[in-house]
Design a binder for these strands. Structure first.
Lengths: 232, 232
DNA sequence: TTTGCCCGTTAAAAAACGTTAAGCCCAGAT
DNA sequence: ATCTGGGCTTAACGTTTTTTAACGGGCAAA
């Protein structure tokens, strides 16, 4: 069963926000609407989205800062900015932050849709399955359902376990920076959150012990690295 | 099992960066994307890459400086530069720094791919195995997994041990400059880091003691040299 | 050959990480 | 309102990794 592509929409103007949400839903997307950057960031780290649409000017946290935070731990997910003014500097800053596209208000709904589809067509080459699941070695992982399908049993992950594993998987074979991960999941990288994270690393190691080819390696003082040795 | 050739891509424009990453991944490469020269350098020293693609103009540290730093301790790994302008001086400077090729934006993806493959075909004369491991005398060394397979047991190396041994191996039978190694691993070549390095040299000598034909020789005031006497 | 710096080695101290378990908090059930 | 269980944090203790210290020997230049 193919799942809908899910969109995180951050727009402080509730009027416009709901309009967009309704429109996109009617086109078959799952849309989560946040009214400011801060809640959008939390939503992003909690859930699992295939696409982001951020208004540039928002209270609490503007769209650019939001994008910057997200890019620390996720360099993949496409981001499209909405802005009221057609300022060139904004545009440039946006692109340097990893924006995939840019739309100036007011815009036609159909144009937004066209751009979303164009970007999705272009970037959709991840090793993610149609239903949103992916394989870690021989273990099937469903981030949305927080499920880990081992050979024998199926484990249910908690929120934090799931968030951490998602980050590790996004950075598979590459280093997941300690501080970045802490800020992403705990919001703050103090001592105690650090120890908490270590506890969760231990939990994940235990959970993934079913497959010997999987290893969560520590890089002293830097972070962790999820390694899947290619089995012959 | 053959492992993918891994590419370190340094490109500050995340838009182009992701595009390239996605494209190269689809062609079977492992691609690590860094957004500036400084993180690219750290990434290089921590990981183990077969190929480098550097944008010339980047914040924090430009592509040329990055290449210069890397060439201090690695004269092998191919480097290809990307530049916005077709300046002849840039080109010359690039080649004098040990660039293997040069590409001016905008360029066609397929051209990039062709050049990468051409270079890899040309320079692929290392004694590295298909799976990324290599032999040091009679000892099998897997840098990615930080493993040293002795006759009897298998030793796990720590982050620092692994980084240092990687540098020594890259400069096998050639001198590894003390200061360069310190900057590469410790980021700074002060007195204490120097002593720390000496401690790690001692650890590695002990770890490699299993094979009498291996020697880490000191070159007074210069650095160290990994020597493997050819066993008859 | 003597002086100063550099290196070899071992040990102790400090920092980071691994693991287990106890305590806390909160939502849902009673 | 109280009980209960799951999830998260904090604590405590052990281990590993890295740094710093201390001391002795070696090398090279004057």
């Amino acid at each position: 069963m193919k799942k809908n592509t899910s969109i995180l929409l951050a727009e402080d103007d509730l009027n416009l926000g709901q309009l967009l949400q309704t429109f996109l839903k009617s086109k078959g997307f799952d849309v989560s609407l946040a009214q400011n950057g801060k809640t959008a960031l939390e939503r992003f780290h909690e859930g699992s989205f295939d696409f982001c649409i951020f208004d540039v000017m928002m209270p609490e946290m503007d769209g650019f800062t939001l994008a910057k935070e997200i890019r620390e731990i996720d360099k993949q997910t496409p981001i499209l900015f909405l802005t009221a003014k057609a300022m060139k500097e904004d545009k440039l800053e946006g692109f340097s932050l990893g924006a995939d596209d840019y739309l100036t208000k007011p815009f036609a709904m159909e144009e937004l849709l066209a751009r979303i589809n164009a970007i999705l067509r272009r970037v959709d080459t991840s090793d993610e399955e149609e239903d949103g699941s992916r394989m870690i070695g021989s273990i099937k992982y469903e981030p949305e359902l927080r499920l880990l399908h081992l050979k024998e049993e199926t484990k249910k992950l908690t929120t934090k376990e799931n968030q951490l594993l998602t980050l590790l998987v996004k950075n598979q074979n590459d280093i997941l920076d300690r501080q970045a991960a802490l800020r992403a999941i705990w919001g703050d990288d103090n001592y105690f959150n650090g120890r908490s994270m270590d506890v969760y690393i231990a939990k994940l190691r235990k959970a993934l012990k079913g497959d010997e080819s999987i290893e969560i390696m520590n890089v002293h003082g830097k972070g962790f690295k999820l390694i899947v040795k290619d089995s012959e």
